[in-house]
Every structure is written in C-alpha cells, then in structure tokens.
Nucleic acid binder design. Structure first.
Lengths: 252, 252
DNA sequence: GCATGGATTTGACTTAAGTCAACGACCCGC
DNA sequence: GCGGGTCGTTGACTTAAGTCAAATCCATGC
C-alpha cells in the first residue's frame, strides 16, 4: 500500500498509465481524441487512511474513480448506528451524474488516491460520447447486483456465514489470489478493514466479528497471522461456510 | 387491482396509453419515430397473483416494464432461506441489457401486467438512441440508492423500525397518498404483500412481522382494517418509528 | 349452514447476537 | 524500557428475534 500523504494533484505523473477512469472504468472503448479530452479534465486527490473524503449531504462537484487504496460508503442513522453500503476498490467509480450532493459518507480505510473530474464537463462529455454512458450503465448494474447480493447477506446469513462471505469476496476481488483459488491452492489475503469496519459492513457488532473470526480459526477454516493477514488453506471449505453455492458470489 | 387471467398479448389495446416503457420509464424524451419503433417491438404478458414470471438462472430474452400490479425479485440460498431484493412497481424496469439469464426469481405478488421487448432489438435501439441508455442509467442509479437504503434497514434497524419503514415506503410510492402525508392528514394504504412476503423483504420471520404489526396497532401508530388495509393517523409519528430522519426515505 | 384450507395471530420457549466490562497485544514517542 | 493509546479478544450476562405449536380468522365451494 503506497504512501501518499498530501491532498493534492500532480503527485502522480500526468501520464497516469493506470488511471482507471481512462483505462478500465469509463473510457475502455474511447478513441484517442476522447482520451485526450479526459486527460485535460482530470486531477488527483490523495487521502490518508481514516480520512473522510466527503460527508453525506455535502456539495459534490466531481465524479471520481479509485486509483489505489480502499474507501467505504457509509449511511448513518441519527442515533449513530452505521451501515457500510459499498466498498470502493481500485477502478470503482464514485459520484452520480445529475446530482450535486453526496448521498453517503465516503471514508478512506487505507491510504487512497482518487482520479477526479469536475462534474459539469464530465456530464457534457457523457452526452457527446455515448460509450461513456454505456460503460457507466454496465458498472452501475454490476454495483446493483453486488448491493442485492449484500442484501441477502444482511437479511439472511448468520454471523459466521457473514464473516466467511466477506473473506471470500475479498479473496475473489484480488486477481492474483483468484487464480490460486481455482488451482485449489492455499490463499493469502490481507484484510483491508478494521474489525469495526467489518462489523459496519456486515451488520454486526465488532465483538461478534471478533468472536466469529476466532471460531473460524479454531475450526481450521482460516489461519490468522497478526490481525490482518489471513491464510485460507481450503477455499472451497470457506465457500461452504459462507452459505453461497459454489460459484454464486461475484460481489462488490 | 384489475383481473387479467391469461398469459398472453393483446389483452391491452395496442395503443397502450399507459405503457411505462414508452411514457415514463425509458422513452420519456424520444421523438415520434422512436416511439413508433418501440410500438412495433413491444408485447404484453399478464400473470396472476402468486405466479412466477421467471426463475433465477433461466434464459431471459426480453426486457420489460411493469404496467400494473406488483412483482418481487427474490434471492434464495440452497437451504431455502429467501430474501426479497427488490420490489417492482408500475413503471419499474426489469432485465439487464448485456446478460441473457435472470439473476433473481421474479414473482407476481398481485395480478400483474408487464410490457415486454425482445432483448436483441432493444439493445440495438439503445445503441442508436442514446436517450434510452441515459434514462436507463438514471433509473439504475435510483434503484442502487434504494438498494443501499435497504441495506441500512436490513443491517441496522429493529423489527419494529423495519415494519414502520415498509409502511412509510409503500405510502410514499403512492402519489395520491403522498399528497395527504404532506398535508398532515390521515393516510390509507393497502399492503400489496402477504405477511410472509413482508418477512422476506425485511429479513424477518412472518411471526415477527405479525407481532410487530400488532404492537404498532396496540400503540396507536397504525390501525388495521382487515389484513391488508392500514390507516396511518399520524404519518410523522410513523416516520419517527421508522428510524429515518424526517425526509430520508425515497425507496423502491 | 358447514367443512376446508390458507393466512394470520398468539403463546411458550430457545438461541444467536448484542451489551457491558475487563483484559491483552501492539505501536509509537520519549 | 516505559507509559499511553488504539485495536482486538474474551467472558458474563441480557435481550431481540427465531422456533415450534396452537388457536383464530376468513374466503370459498358444496
């Protein structure tokens, strides 16, 4: 996880080869002049782990895409109960064309770099470049599927299944790891969330998260090395514990 | 709730003035020749309350929009646990361009009429008519917001708050009702779901749903007349019980 | 009217997860 | 090496919601 302490542009070279808005997210099929337009518009912002990117209700005059690091979308009730409603991983898109305030708190859970575009010109470009809108529709539909899968988890799974599901999802999102799961080999993952954030994501308390992790460890489903590093000796076993059928989950 | 028993086209006059795909959902801004294209492509299907429209995993070669009635999207675990992940009300869109199997069970909970389009020509038209894709993106973003609001409900609300939230949402979705809520007048709603379906939507058991409805009745928050008809004497009181801040919920 | 069956309610009891509180592990600055 | 703070674990107890089992309600057909 690379260290990027300031909150400014130009820490990343202007020819940002990995900028996901350009290469993976929005503009995968654009021709070069459109790429150039995007290039002119974009700027970068970085955040340290724990910093808030934006508060729900604040004015949000940009859309963005995660370059490195992880952020969460959180909803809060007046009495303080909190639910994480989305994880933002590299290449994920944030922000809604056609709305000018944030609907959720966005928080960096690791050090984070985002690639931003001012909303107005982005929207104009969406009109003139249909590919972008189409790509955005695809991504939004994927997010909707992920949200619905998560609704099943929140509404129907036990605490143990929730923890197993979370680990399975984190493993699957990691390309190098997912090759190993297919090969039936042991898998190593790094949890990008504190126990408290896991609890907020899974609709549990942090004590329950801790107890269920201990239980999965006791039962040999996972091994912990330190607080964040997990070894999964048998990924299929983890999937059984998650309550998903063998190949259902393709979340977040 | 109008009775439409068969499962066929042409029960609705071919000049279907209320077809939501044409008028409200997808094509709100189309010019007349595009309307004509859509007119050529569409057909209708009706279902009785309780019938299944399509099973998760089945081939789905159409997209559709609800004309009248209500349907649910349900996810099921192998052991039979079920979670409703979406309500489809009139004008809501179903189906995903770019995928050819259904991701969820779709079930009619009341008698239902849907307006369908074969997927292939619809997709072609999306490419040639950017407005449609843009409208679809907007609708998908609204659904995503609704799903995320529901995640907060599933993960953090008590059974009593869940029931109150459901009633508030049903009331708000009804235009004639929502005028009355603003005027501070008593509100009447008809529950479009059985107790079991409410339980599946709220992540509860049907016994808990029943008990909490009784409790809200006992406490004067609602009055029941029969099993489905609800009177809400004080809508703000119901909102307090729902745990939402005064104006947060704008859900499915 | 009366039997039938599905939907709903209610009661008695159980249990998974939450709450409150103490304790342990680790990191950082001095 | 020594506090002090954050994060995580564990234990003892409570509670909201689930489970199992009986009623009750009500629409329907005979």
């Amino acid at each position: 996880m690379q260290k990027t302490a300031t909150l400014d542009k130009d820490i990343i070279p202007s020819d940002c080869g990995d900028c996901p808005i350009r290469h993976r997210a929005v503009c995968a099929r654009c021709e070069s002049d459109e790429l150039h337009q995007l290039e002119e518009m974009k700027y970068y912002r970085s955040f340290e782990a724990g910093q808030t990117v934006i508060w729900s209700g604040d004015r949000m005059d940009f859309v963005a895409s995660v370059v490195t690091g992880i952020a969460t979308l959180t909803q809060t009730m007046e009495d303080g109960r909190r639910q994480i409603v989305g994880l933002l991983l590299p290449s994920d898109f944030v922000g809604r064309p056609g709305r000018d305030t944030a609907a959720y708190d966005i928080t960096a859970t690791t050090d984070l770099v985002m690639c931003c575009f001012r909303k107005k010109p982005f929207e104009e470009m969406m009109v003139s470049t249909p590919h972008i809108g189409q790509r955005l529709l695809e991504m939004t539909l994927d997010e909707l599927d992920a949200a619905r899968e998560w609704m099943l988890l929140l509404g129907r799974k036990t605490a143990r299944e929730k923890i197993a599901s979370l680990m399975a999802i984190i493993a699957r999102r990691d390309a190098t790891v997912s090759a190993r799961t297919k090969a039936g080999r042991p898998v190593q993952i790094e949890l990008p969330l504190t126990r408290e954030a896991m609890a907020e994501y899974l609709g549990l308390t942090l004590e329950t998260v801790s107890r269920q992790i201990s239980a999965l460890k006791r039962d040999g489903v996972i091994e912990m090395h330190g607080k964040r590093h997990v070894t999964i000796p048998d990924f299929d076993r983890l999937l059984e514990e998650s309550g998903d059928d063998s190949d259902g989950g393709f979340l977040v």
